[in-house]
């Protein structure tokens, strides 16, 4: 039986080989690992946003998406979907961690908390199409920190973020960098 972590590692290595990344018997460099992790995250996130939320809530209007999805009997918001996954990972392992942050968060919890998060989010907003990589020390441990742009892929993204009562920014449009995915691996 494989442990969940072993499965994740096998998946990453498998995906790495398929993509021709720098995977080898000696292991992968941090950047390749976070790139691959992010590829899985952003693909799943886009699928959920476009094929579930945008289709059912915006285009067909058959169900709402709501932050209070239980009380409102609604779909989980894409940002919550992402966060619940990351919290589930946090319960299983501390070999990596990730979060979805923004310089313009609706939920203040998702504003940058470390100087590197702020630097990374500013960098990806100013340099569309580029990622940010760095090293930072948190709680006495050194981390490899990667920040990837999170792009507005469907109307559901900007419609909700522009209209929400707590949003600090109201002019998002298709293709904008709305925030970033931060992935950390302890070195």
């Amino acid at each position: 039986m494989m442990t969940p972590m072993a499965k994740v590692k096998a998946l990453i290595v498998g995906a790495g080989v398929a993509l021709g990344g720098s995977a080898s018997a000696d292991g992968m460099d941090y950047e390749t690992v976070t790139d691959l992790l992010h590829l899985v995250m952003s693909s799943d996130r886009t699928v959920y946003t476009r094929m579930i939320v945008n289709r059912l809530a915006v285009e067909e209007g058959v169900i709402k998406a709501s932050e209070h999805f239980e009380d409102d009997k609604a779909l989980v918001l894409p940002a919550q979907m992402f966060r619940f996954g990351s919290e589930m990972v946090a319960e299983e392992t501390d070999e990596f961690s990730y979060s979805l942050l923004s310089l313009w968060p609706i939920n203040k919890q998702n504003a940058p908390t470390t100087p590197m998060e702020k630097e990374g989010l500013e960098y990806i907003a100013a340099n569309p199409g580029e990622n940010f990589y760095g090293e930072e020390e948190l709680g006495g441990e050194t981390y490899f920190t990667a920040v990837y742009p999170d792009i507005a892929v469907a109307e559901a993204c900007w419609a909700c973020h522009n209209d929400h009562k707590d949003t600090p920014r109201t002019d998002f449009k298709a293709g904008d960098v709305m925030g970033g995915v931060v992935i950390r691996i302890p070195m």
């Binding site: 589930m88 319960e91 979060s99």
Partner: peptide, 16 residues
């Protein structure tokens, strides 16, 4: 629906 669940604070970004 714990407002301050442990899992939220495990992320190293909460180290401060």
């Amino acid at each position: 629906d714990d407002s301050h669940p442990i899992k939220k604070f495990k992320n190293p970004r909460m180290a401060a």
